[in-house]
């Protein structure tokens, strides 16, 4: 829980080092650029954070993003309607999420396996629907969700902030949110104290799926194309963003502010590597080292504090 200040410290240290190392980093446009790049990762990771806090896991997020984006793209091409694309993305995301929720809460399949199964189903459905095609070219109304600006700040950043605030309010201010924490901390105790564990489970998986639908719209807006492998690079970074942010893999502790910081750390690393023109061969090594350094600093600080 108390990892958050240390992770914010790690992010600030990383930012400080990059501002000294390269002129391109500490500019308003680059910071907005990093926020915009982090938004997609954060949106995918945000619902996942709720699931993990509730003691579950959702491995299907990236595949759900893919399927939601592909179905939305096809819906737009079939109807020419942006509203249809939005409804399809959100509906598809939510449906996959609810399927996860039912599998975990009602059929009682372990979360890892249930969502591993839906990962394959969602990707398989995307491969089948797309059949090797790329669907591309969307109208300004949809593109705006990814490339637009409101008051000088990119639209996806506003969406990210809105999700962070609404999600935080849900987790920490609503009864249902607190029940998610209890469920994750000790399912048996939660059940005995009258918390509707099953309904809370379905709720968090449904929200996780819905956020994949939102992320799918931002993706289509930004990239202007959908293909069956589009979400693949996001699964591990999404899980990493949640855990770097201090949410416990064992449930019961965490929050969206941490996930935001986690997404920003991962995005900032790539931004820095690009700005410094670090050779491709070094990217994986440097990324791993910085992530471990960010986590290790925290562990050291915690030990010294104790």
């Amino acid at each position: 829980m108390n990892a958050l200040p240390a992770r914010i410290g790690a992010l600030l240290l990383l930012a400080l080092a990059l501002s000294l190392a390269t002129e391109g980093f500490a500019t308003a446009t680059n910071l907005l650029n990093v926020l915009r790049q982090a938004s997609l990762l954060f949106l995918v990771a945000s619902g996942l954070t709720l699931v993990i806090i509730g003691g579950g896991l959702d491995l299907s997020v990236a595949a759900n993003l893919t399927l939601s984006a592909c179905t939305a793209a096809l819906a737009f091409k079939a109807t020419g309607s942006v509203a249809a694309a939005v409804a399809t993305a959100l509906g598809c995301g939510l449906a996959v999420g609810l399927l996860n929720g039912l599998l975990v809460a009602v059929v009682r399949v372990p979360a890892f396996l249930a969502t591993y199964g839906t990962l394959w189903i969602a990707s398989g459905a995307a491969y089948w629907l797309m059949a090797g095609r790329v669907v591309y070219g969307f109208p300004p109304a949809l593109r705006g969700l990814g490339t637009g600006f409101v008051l000088g700040v990119p639209t996806p950043v506003w969406i990210m902030l809105a999700v962070a605030v609404a999600g935080g309010a849900f987790l920490f201010l609503s009864a249902a949110g607190r029940e998610v924490f209890f469920t994750g901390a000790n399912e048996e105790a939660a059940r005995l104290s009258g918390i509707p564990v099953r309904r809370r489970r379905i709720l968090v998986y449904g929200l996780s799926g819905l956020m994949c639908g939102v992320a799918a719209l931002v993706y289509l807006g930004r990239v202007n194309a959908a293909e069956a492998g589009l979400g693949d690079p996001l699964l591990l970074p999404a899980v990493a963003a949640v855990l770097i942010g201090g949410t416990s893999l064992f449930g019961g502790a965490g929050g969206l502010a941490g996930t935001l910081v986690g997404a920003l750390i991962l995005t900032t690393v790539t931004n820095g590597l690009n700005l410094l023109d670090v050779g491709a061969a070094w990217h994986p090594f440097v990324t791993g080292t910085i992530i471990l350094a960010a986590l290790g600093a925290d562990a050291l600080l915690a030990r010294r504090g104790a």
Partner: peptide, 17 residues
């Protein structure tokens, strides 16, 4: 990585500098 989103983001980053 031969992929669209990583290329888009790398290009966005390089344009900053």
């Amino acid at each position: 990585n031969f992929q669209r989103l990583p290329a888009l983001q790398a290009m966005e980053n390089i344009m900053q500098r």
